[in-house]
């Protein structure tokens, strides 16, 4: 498919050449040679180029190889020197083009040498083969020639680091950034919490039960209330109230609501407590405790 596509322009071009009577530019006796460094002339891989069809297999260019393109430019059938004779390399992904000028003699014999150091870094890092086309054109009525003649595979020496310049600044939308929040504090599964809550609450009946087996009771309540009813009611009530104040402070009150209330309740507890504890002392002195 790809081969067919690469054939198409040249086929079209050749058909155009047939239709138009005017002479057109082309080339003949074209060879492309890849010469490894230090190797003899015989070691070079040589391919003949056809102006109508692209070379079926791609030419590969190693790190130290030199690519040599030789051709004779023709106008009509005659060898002639054009004004423009370029070897144009096209990077198929980005469409980047770079042209190398062929030095053409008056006889129409032209050549260009190419090494990896002549290529821009985009060509060296290209993932697809680079398309090499030949452009021949000149002033006057002769039809210019442009066609893909071969694919160039650039095989880089991976050990040699490639100096790729930093990408220049261009105005465009930047990547989105979303702040990464610190992790929320986590709680264990509430089932586990509930089990331990149950264990903690169960400790209260256990404590009360233990006291009961040790003979704890409240049978002097009537006696105490009979001896000092106001003091005992106020004293125990104030202790209850203080816990109530703590509960309110925990749920809704602020410190300024809590402190006066705690002060009043504390005073009541102090005054009523001294009376109530006097009553307890009387019971102890009476041998009832």
């Amino acid at each position: 498919m790809k081969l067919l596509l690469s054939f198409l322009p040249s086929l079209l071009l050749s058909s155009v050449a047939v239709v138009s009577a005017a002479s057109s530019w082309s080339f003949e006796d074209a060879t492309v040679t890849v010469q490894p460094k230090g190797a003899g002339i015989g070691a070079a891989a040589k391919e003949k180029l056809d102006p109508i069809a692209s070379l079926p297999k791609s030419v590969s260019l190693g790190a130290t190889d030199t690519l040599k393109l030789l051709l004779t430019t023709t106008d009509g059938k005659k060898a002639k020197r054009p004004h423009q004779a370029f070897l144009t390399l096209t990077e198929p992904v980005t469409g980047l083009e770079e042209s190398f000028v062929l030095s053409v003699k008056d006889s129409g014999k032209g050549k260009v040498d190419l090494g990896q150091k002549d290529l821009p870094h985009q060509f060296l890092t290209s993932s697809k083969p680079i398309q090499a086309s030949i452009v021949i054109g000149s002033f006057g009525a002769s039809e210019p020639y442009k066609s893909k003649v071969f694919d160039l595979n650039v095989s880089r020496d991976e050990n040699v680091p490639l100096a790729i310049p930093e990408k220049p600044v261009r105005y465009a939308a930047g990547d989105e950034i979303h702040h990464i929040f610190k992790e929320e504090p986590r709680s264990p599964p509430s089932v586990i919490s509930l089990v331990f809550v149950a264990a903690v609450i169960a400790a209260l009946p256990v404590l009360l039960g233990a006291w009961a087996t040790l003979g704890a009771n409240v049978s002097h309540l009537g006696k105490a209330l009979g001896n000092a009813p106001v003091s005992h009611a106020l004293f125990y009530g104030s202790i209850l109230a203080m816990e109530g104040i703590f509960f309110l402070y925990y749920t809704s009150w602020n410190l300024f609501q809590t402190l006066p209330a705690a002060g009043v309740v504390g005073l009541v507890a102090f005054l009523s407590g001294s009376r109530a504890l006097t009553e307890v002392q009387e019971r102890r002195l009476a041998g009832l405790r």
């Binding site: 331990f196 609450i201 009771n217 409240v218």
Partner: peptide
């Protein structure tokens, strides 16, 4: 919840202790 439960159990235990100490 465990710690809140602990506090209120302590409160209840304190009230019970005061009552026992006064009236037992």
């Amino acid at each position: 919840w465990v710690w809140i439960g602990g506090i209120w159990v302590t409160v209840a235990g304190w009230l019970a202790f005061v009552a026992l100490w006064l009236y037992s």
